[in-house]
Design a protein around this nucleic acid. Sequence first.
DNA 1: CTAGTTGCAAAGAGTTTGCATGGCG
DNA 2: CGCCATGCAAACTCTTTGCAACTAG
Lengths: 132, 132
Amino acid sequence: MSQYNTKQGETLLRFLQENSSRHFTAAEIETQLALTGEKLGKATVYRRLDRLVEGGKVRRFVADDAKSCCYQYIGDGHCREHFHLKCYKCGELLHVECDYLDKMQAHILEHHGFTVDREKITICGVCEKCSV
Amino acid sequence: MSQYNTKQGETLLRFLQENSSRHFTAAEIETQLALTGEKLGKATVYRRLDRLVEGGKVRRFVADDAKSCCYQYIGDGHCREHFHLKCYKCGELLHVECDYLDKMQAHILEHHGFTVDREKITICGVCEKCSV
DNA sequence: CTAGTTGCAAAGAGTTTGCATGGCG
DNA sequence: CGCCATGCAAACTCTTTGCAACTAG
């Protein structure tokens, strides 16, 4: 699939990495990159994002009120090992390594016969800063 | 807002209630109702769904792969008191009353300074039947 | 009778696709 | 040089909106 390294591909990935505490829509990414003169075509943005999502480097989701998808860098496969808490006020994504949550997963399986998909799960709420 | 009771409004609500273990896109709802001769206009479907979502009777979300919104009946305000586990294979929505999860919420607040929004949270995974 | 509701069709918004050009290896 | 990637614009899909006709209260 992604076989060639291109300037555009690197630009997009770098942008997401450098702003990994925030999420963006495709349109926002396009605009932001255009501001710094690194203009990418709309289609390219979508195509590369799709790949990053498939490759597990980027998470795609739809914010509650939003009409379009948001994308956020979550890093390499390493993120499978912990949980994600996402603040829907500021957009901050917290990566949490937590025994309690590990046990939660076991509890749910045992008591409710349900296998939690920790890779996909994102726990929404409000972070410390925003809850004041 | 919703002041008049109409045949269309009742038809839609009844359909969702009777199929509360499943979720549907707006288009699916339209099609299903048309099959039983209870044809609703596209716009009406969207407008009534919006209201039901605002009123808390229906949950709107975007399935991982899907391109469009899904809607599922979750009942009256009562659903704020428990947690939802959703199977992404069969679509079943489990309503779970669980001390452990209550404590989880407390734990996350205490140890991670994060206020979980239990109304919005849906824990995704695979249910008992589908995990075999 | 009045105000909310419906249905149609047109408008919008976001995303995907086709195709010629350009760039990586 | 071959093949993939890019960029543009057109095509698509889903959702919202405008408006005249209709209906609940």
